[in-house]
Design a binder for these strands. Structure first.
Lengths: 337, 337
DNA sequence: CTAGCATGATCAAACGATTGTTCACGAGGA
DNA sequence: TCCTCGTGAACAATCGTTTGATCATGCTAG
């Protein structure tokens, strides 16, 4: 790899001249002739500035960390796509740090953050990491944006309209005529989970429908936990005729468990889920979903982080555009009689 | 962030002493007393070695690039999980570089590789990048491992048993009694696509079944192209009774297109697909698949890259353990008749 | 004729860590 | 007493860039 000084030698000038010319700072005084020679030499040697040296000098790595609960789900994929795209436009790279099966005394996150590897971090904690973990991260002093979890004290979060989304989902079932509606939510410690539950309860209250406690489950956002939620509801003397699932991944679990139990969807039970990923269409029946802008969430998160890195400001943003939208497919229908 | 010299000052010793003690190289002569003082000081200041400085001095970034065609598919997710896990165990980080919608004159890959940001690169080129692109990457001088594409000339690839896998899939249909079998493959320029096609043709030949050219399509690995393949076959005067799809993502496209056209699966047409991701189970009908070890492929790729980085050796490996396995679900059945 | 100044370029110090070389000191042998 | 050698530690160069300070030159103005 050619270095600055290689270019300097070839062009017959000093290193600093080369540096100044190639970095194109306004107001540098270099004659047109040498400028040309430097550009030529750089091109001939295929010069590329060494990233590590730059990072050391400027304490900017042009990289951000993305901490996610896991990489094998479609929600992550959508989010990731947004982050990746925005990062590219800002000339940043994305470093993935997956926290699945986080071992005791995990060191990788503090290391990621403490060693000056990244300029900032995006965290999407799933079910299994708590507010305490979030605090550890935010206390590191690095710019941090938390995705879809509000960050108590230290600002910097990007969220979706979870509550409005769940209202939409619930109202859809109510309009279809369902009155006994179950809820399969995230774990109670999840802040987004609380907002989603509030949306569900709000919509039910507005329709003056009662919600029996046994119909509200909070097992988590993953397929297994969706299955678990359905099991719990199926055991009831009178199961619900419809279920609002707070996460599409859990909804896939609900669907396969329903198949296992011989519950027909939507004939015996309607299902509506939060988030509209491509997997909703390949499921059977295709899932009625509330689409929330995950891609835009990713973009916004990266954009906010960039702002935070460059100006130190950290606001809490809610991504409301595009607004939550109900996508009706084939997993919902009026209650059987 | 505390630096080495902060620690040195606090412990009342020189920077080099601290460096030597903390890096724990064998054969350093430092008294027990100062050693202790250094460790204490480091702990009190919560010292962490600065990654950029280390990288500059040692020309090792402890990061690798993962170049993939896209992040929103389950195959990538599985692969990624393997790469990520192996990287973690080797104390490496993974930088994602997605090539979807690669603009003209894309600069991000050369930049990723040329600026000393990573110690090596893992490339999984999908359909839309050719051998030429691969060569650009391998010619950079950086260690490169190509995933599931053999790397002409310069070694370093990790592959799956594509041919054996496709044989398994095809034989399954033959055993069910199908004789008129279609093939929905990857684009002809894809090297893995060629191996898969060979597997299909081989199995057909072994069973002395003829393959009419019109039944062999090579549109690509994505859902849309799967749909396109089905369209082409459905137009035939006598469509096949079964289709081997060379990629599960394409198979999802086949499935939804079949639904659109009113073709019942498996009653009217059986479908078997390559790769067994979690989406196979949520599809309707759940897809019969050939499971190839994608997670292990990811791990092996990262392990090979690590070897390559550290020893300069680049071999071509085929991941044969676990062996290809047919997972029979509900998308295949004997031909109607 | 020279002080003053704009111009175009170089010098040199830093960023934080690593590492070969040197140094100070005391013990041991001649 | 002098030289040698081993020990424990400091010195200093280096990785490749960036950037404030400095310098040489030629020109203009007083």
């Amino acid at each position: 790899m050619a270095t600055l000084s290689d270019v300097a030698t070839r062009a017959g000038v000093s290193v600093s001249a080369v540096s100044r010319v190639l970095s194109e700072k306004p107001g540098v005084r270099v004659s047109v002739a040498t400028r040309q020679r430097i550009h030529d030499a750089a091109k001939e040697l295929n010069y590329r500035p060494n990233f590590t040296a730059r990072a050391l000098k400027s304490s900017r790595t042009h990289a951000v960390g993305l901490v996610v609960p896991g990489v094998t789900n479609a929600i992550f994929a959508e989010l990731m796509r947004g982050v990746e795209e925005e990062a590219k436009s800002k000339d940043y790279m994305v470093l993935i740090a997956s926290t699945e099966r986080l071992p005791e005394g995990e060191e990788s996150i503090p290391r990621l953050m403490g060693e000056g590897r990244v300029d900032g971090v995006l965290v999407q904690f799933g079910d299994h990491l708590s507010g305490d973990d979030l605090r550890t991260v935010t206390d590191s002093g690095l710019p941090v944006i938390s995705i879809n979890t509000i960050n108590p004290g230290r600002g910097g979060s990007v969220r979706l309209e979870d509550e409005a989304g769940m209202r939409l989902a619930t109202e859809h079932l109510i309009e279809l005529g369902h009155t006994r509606i179950g809820y399969a939510g995230g774990v109670p410690t999840s802040e987004s989970g609380q907002r989603r539950l509030a949306g569900f309860l709000g919509a039910m209250a507005d329709a003056t429908l009662t919600v029996e406690p046994e119909l509200v489950t909070e097992f988590g956002y993953y397929p297994k936990q969706g299955a678990q939620a359905l099991d719990a509801m199926a055991e009831l003397s009178t199961p619900p005729t419809a279920v609002v699932v707070a996460n599409i991944n859990a909804a896939h679990g609900v669907l396969s468990e329903a198949r296992r139990l011989g519950i027909r969807v939507p004939e015996d039970m309607s299902i509506v889920a939060m988030h509209d990923t491509w997997t909703a269409e390949i499921a059977w029946p295709p899932l009625t979903c509330v689409r929330l802008p995950l891609y835009e969430l990713g973009r916004a998160a990266m954009a906010s982080l960039w702002d935070n890195i460059n100006s130190g400001t950290a606001e809490d943003r809610v991504i409301a555009d595009p607004a939550p939208e109900l996508i009706v497919r084939e997993s919902t229908a009026p209650p059987a009689r």
